[in-house]
Design a protein around this nucleic acid. Structure first.
Length: 250
DNA sequence: AAGAGTCGCAACCGCGGGTGT
DNA sequence: TACACCCGCGGTTGCGACTCT
């Protein structure tokens, strides 16, 4: 039995959001937080379904959203991630704090696809269009092999040596995650997946033994915070991928 | 100036996964 | 085990803005 569409109820509004609706939603969430999206419209006095509220908040109203066009460096990173992950937009978006999966998906469909095609690259396979039919593709193109993953890790181990005492915050520990795995993942991702980190920023950071909060000059605080957000987000992603591979090959 | 065509993005839809009963 | 419910994801659509003729 299929599920009923969530917006079937008579009287629910659809289409573009008004400023007044935005204000109601923002005001409600900032004051009450989000427990259950289903109850949000009722409590916030909105004639919308919970799903619509969630989408509006995540894609447009969240205060931590980064506005403005994606840079060429970000585009390049998206291409690289897409080659590895495929159309897993939420996964790709998690590497870009402040960007949404919808934004990245739209950007891919409207710009990057065309850019790749102009370069003679198939956006689906990431292979040159002329050559692709002659090349054998592995069944699962979206995952690095376990060998590749550990090669990548080894390549970058030396680079991160100075960042010692990186530890997993207590609230991140679970029965499935051990600290060694966390540390390996953190070390790997911090060099593989954050190409925007400047050498100066890296050198200025001393990792706390308990919280991963960096001690940095005040004028660098914002950029360092952004970097830490990015690092933390990437660490989680790398950890998930490592766990996935361990489960797959164990 | 105006109509046609194209583009970009916000929003919707349907599905699958997770969870509780 | 089956079912109901909610959330989040990826694909798709609709429409306003913009460009071209």
């Amino acid at each position: 039995m299929g599920r009923q569409p969530c917006c079937d109820r008579v009287g629910l509004k659809r289409g573009p959001w008004t400023i007044e609706e935005d204000h109601k939603l923002v005001h409600f969430i900032l004051n009450n937080g989000i427990q259950c999206w289903r109850t949000v419209p009722k409590l916030a006095d909105l004639q919308r379904c919970g799903k619509s509220c969630r989408l509006r908040w995540i894609n447009y109203l969240r205060p931590d959203l980064k506005r403005g066009a994606l840079s060429e460096a970000e585009e390049d990173q998206i291409i690289e991630l897409h080659a590895r992950l495929g159309n897993r937009w939420s996964k790709i978006a998690s590497y870009f704090p402040g960007r949404t999966d919808n934004e990245i998906k739209n950007h891919w469909n409207t710009r990057i696809k065309k850019r790749l095609q102009l370069m003679g690259i198939d956006p689906l396979t990431h292979q040159p269009i002329d050559k692709e039919k002659y090349q054998h593709e592995p069944d699962d193109k979206t995952e690095l092999s376990i060998t590749e993953t550990y090669d990548k890790r080894n390549e970058t181990e030396n680079f991160i040596e100075n960042a010692n005492d990186i530890s997993l915050p207590n609230n991140m520990l679970s029965e499935n995650i051990n600290e060694e795995l966390w540390n390996n993942s953190f070390k790997t991702m911090s060099t593989c997946y954050s190409p925007s980190i400047s050498l100066e920023a890296e050198e200025s950071i001393n990792f706390s033994t308990t919280s991963n909060v960096a001690a940095a000059p005040a004028e660098e605080e914002d950029s360092v915070q952004q970097w830490m957000d990015s690092i933390f987000s990437c660490a989680i992603n790398q950890l998930e991928e490592d766990l996935f591979l361990l489960r797959k090959y164990n």
